[in-house]
Design a protein around this nucleic acid. Structure first.
Lengths: 232, 232
DNA sequence: TAGTGGTCTAGACCACAGC
DNA sequence: CTGTGGTCTAGACCACTAT
């Protein structure tokens, strides 16, 4: 093991302290001069460490004021299939899900087409509501190709999300998604605790594994409570 | 416009040179010492500029060897800044745009913050409606940093979209976007020919060039007429 | 060996926030 | 006013590459 550069050690120290809750969201971090003394290093070295943490959105710096632990951002990157549970926990909030439906059936004509199937094979269907601090944040309506994930019905969806299980069950090959803004049908609106004329942010996502369509999901979010974001 | 820090000027110089083809992919860039002399700054200042360009994947550095222009990366279709005009024409439909407003003003306090400006510099404002086969498909409300695109007001937006002009005017460094579903305010709803309680798919996008925020745009779409899509 | 980037120092001046 | 971060300097030593 090579010894790490001083600025990297400082970054690691700060990251661990934030992770361990020593400094919480919005709280101030010691000044550059103070950290320089503490680590026995020049101010420029601390400055580099902090500048990089700023670029990584770990901290926020205000000239003349100080350095603060950044607020966790509401963020979903669309390329990555993130677990909504992780996303919520990363914000320091509580995630909980409720399984509303779980069933299996032969594909209908329209589903057969969507799954690009030649025969009416078996599909699983799950309807799950995800909560952030007990507020419904996402309704996930998912159809799964039984051939790809034969044990889907046996999962405990309070322990593992549908997404997490599918990622484990089969290597992801590709993703297609569409995003639209529409009003929710009644049963979805009821699950999200919104009225039927409130706008919803809807993500349709089709994943592929082993050369087949593995799952097709529709994720409904209350427009006022959720947004997608990203960048580079 | 405030004078930029020296390291930022160096970055801009390098970026322009690459943009203009002075140095091509894989070619070597002058050494730190050489650039330091050329710009009349210390080596550390050049080092910072080059380190940031490395982080942005503009150049590749090899210790003991030199600094080279990085291979152009594949822009994942997700963040790709598409011209809505091209997108519509690609569907074989007719594109037309109407310029509703074009003005300039000093940044308000809130815009100053959004543009990460230190002073209330000049911003341009345009409001453009894009039509697909004479149906309004997008309302584009855009603020532009005058320092980055001084000729913005002189453009003929029926010939070139705001986006196309900005891409030409300055090399794009970064993008941040957010997508949400909300109802439109009255004046937007009127331009889109929808009622004020219909859901809209809204894309907020902030682009960066030359180390500054170049433009902030809000694009409104009728939820029933537009969706984002992508995949890999 | 000479030249490159990687890191670091011990100062410095400035703009800004908060008292 | 003091303390903060933002920037910059003119050196330095090191690890590495290329010749």
């Amino acid at each position: 093991m090579t010894t790490l550069p001083a600025y990297q050690n400082i970054k690691n120290h700060i990251l661990e302290a934030i992770h361990n809750g020593v400094w919480k969201e919005g709280e101030a971090i010691p000044a550059e001069m103070q950290l320089a003394e503490q680590f026995g290093v020049s101010r420029m070295t601390v400055n580099r460490a902090m500048r990089e943490l700023t670029a990584e959105q770990i901290v926020t710096r205000i000239q003349g004021s100080g350095t603060y632990v950044a607020q966790q951002k509401y963020q979903t990157t669309l390329v990555e299939i993130k677990s909504i549970a992780d996303e919520i926990r990363a914000r320091g909030h509580k995630h909980r899900s409720e399984l509303q439906q779980l069933s299996q059936s032969k594909a209908s004509d329209s589903l057969k087409a969507l799954f690009e199937l030649k025969t009416k094979s078996t599909l699983y269907h799950s309807l799950i509501v995800h909560f952030e601090n007990d507020i419904p944040i996402q309704v996930e309506d998912r159809r799964v190709n039984a051939a790809i994930a034969p044990d889907y019905l046996k999962q405990d969806f309070s322990r593992i999300t549908a997404n997490e299980y599918l990622m484990m069950a089969a290597p992801l090959q590709g993703v297609d998604y569409q995003i639209e803004a529409i009003t929710a049908p009644e049963h979805i609106a009821a699950l999200l605790h919104i009225s039927t004329h409130e706008p919803c942010l809807v993500l349709h996502r089709k994943t592929r594994s082993m050369g087949c369509v593995a799952s097709i999901a529709t994720m409904w979010h209350a427009g006022t409570r959720y947004r997608f974001s990203g960048g580079f």
